[in-house]
Design a protein around this nucleic acid. Sequence first.
DNA 1: CGGATCGAC
DNA 2: CTATGTCGATCCG
Length: 670
Amino acid sequence: MEYSTPLAEPSQDSASLIKRLAGPSTTKAGLAKDQTEINKVIAEASKGSKFYENEKRKDKDLTERIARILKQRDELTKGANLPKIERAVDELLVELESTRDLTQIIVHVDMDAFYANVEMLDNPDLAGKPFGVGSLGGVLTTASYEARKFGVRSGMPGFIAKKLCPELIFVKMHFSRYSEMSDQVMSIFRQYDPNMLAAGCDEGYLNITSYCEEHSLTADDCVAKMREQVHQETNLTVSAGIAPNKMLAKICSDKNKPNGQFHLPFDRKVITAFMYDLSIRKIPGIGRVNERLLDSIGIKTCGDIYAHRATLSLMDKQFGLKFLLRTYLGIASNNVEPYTREERKSIGAERTFGTITDKEKILKKLDEVAVELASDMGDRGWAGRTITLKYKLDNFQVFTRAKSFDRWVSKKEELFNIGKELLMHEWPLKLRLIGLRATKLKDLKADEGRGIKRFFESAQTSTSPRKKPKLEIHHPDLDSGGAEPKENQLDPDDDDFPESMPGFEEHEFEEAGLDMDLVGGEVGVESGLVDREELEVKDPPDSRTNTGQGMRVRPKSTSSMQTSTSSTTNPLEDKGKRKPHSTTSSSPTKPDAGPSKHRQADEFPSKPGSMVCPICGKAQDTDNVGFNAHVDFCLSRGAILEAQVESLDLRGKGGGKQSGHGKVAGKRKK
DNA sequence: CGGATCGAC
DNA sequence: CTATGTCGATCCG
């Protein structure tokens, strides 16, 4: 019996492999041809390639992994008191339910086939034709809707797309155009929520609660108006999802795509019913692998989660019980705010090339990557203490080798030497890719920002004598909870001690005097689980925001720290449920000055139109946030001439959210 | 901590 | 022929 699990059959193997080859974005709808037919063509074209062999290996590994999981499940289930476990989970569900917040109107906006539609704008002849943005020899970043009917997907190699659609037209990418259009569109979105969270160059999350109130608009009308404005001003179409949290909004934006919107009623019963029949694969964070793992224990839809709650509880580590329970309930973070520089955790560069084995040539590639990374780190102001080498063999297997230092690394020579050292041991090699990445970052622009910030602060409130509290309480998980400890990193005082000590980091101290409190009062709701439990939650994606729902970390109102940490000054203005408008429109000298985030942009008075992008040289008609976004985008695209899968509404749509800083930090050109 | 995986765009 | 690049999160040993 133990052998014959439903999924362990041989036929399943090939089936899953075929599906795997079809790519990650196959959950889409609107396919003219039979998906199985398409998959067949793809499998046929792939057969025998090294890529295919690697996929086969991965599929086999996954199948074995599933077998182990099922075996473990049977063992765990055997002696367990299932009814008791279920009761415990039910209690947890009640607790989670108490955190549901239906007060915020969250919108996920998603540009339809972004790159493709921009190309169509510039070349109307493409209208109605199947085309892909990318090259025959590389991968497609986007496919026109016509092309999608043939099964062509973003991320798909050009030659396979060509097999699916012989008539397919390949259009070269034009980054600067996408960047311009992205800036334009994002600026419009920001009119509805200055705190919009950009998720890549073609997506964003907005909290339009305040906007709707202030303009006496229904959410539907507001979103329709916004979409219409985008269309009027850019000739591009956008789809949107309206829901009480980011996950739901994301899922909803896919409902009526392209050029449509979907509003999920803000009603607990409707929401849970909506989730019940939803394929688990639609959930941001659940990809092909987790879909298979969950399927193996009988979970195909979100509704199936409940019936298997005991198993999920027993195997919490592998599946993430809390995350799935929230998903089952349709509960997720509704905290919307822009990414900040301080959130960056790593910066890297990598490059693929035709297989090479010659040591000299490999080192030359490593050198190129080192140059790229050093340049990028220099431009953006970062140094790192841990350097990770990544390489992909000729057979597509990927490996990483890391080394940490007690000094800050950022120069090309250092990067190269470290990479060379790490590569040394691995010899000989047949490589197709080499990459370098720096982590444990230090923000070299912090001083700059700090100085500026200090200037503004002293100009406004001269009070701020304080010393940095040193504390050790540090709750990493809480950082992600949505608070912004980072605030303190910019604190004045610190520049007195430039970095004398390499290995030493100043962080943790901010927690001093901090106190968790639920913003429940403010609106919130959530927070119920803030305590330590939350700390162990392993929500897959989004954990940072998931737990952040309505939760905030605030400094205790102890006398000592306040003044300078603007965000702490005005509790009522906290970010989660704030009023969008007040933030941007307020003058630079607003007393509450509460930009909780210290993005540099917030530090300067805004002078729309007066700024020129240092990368592309074009004047940017946008605000500071938009300007920063533009520069980031420009920096990021630079060199990658081909590949880089960016926008695609094609992909299963799942996602979004946050991970993304999106952007691509590509490198600035060559 | 280092390494592998997964997921997103 | 031909299958990206950048980044965050998590789990495991």
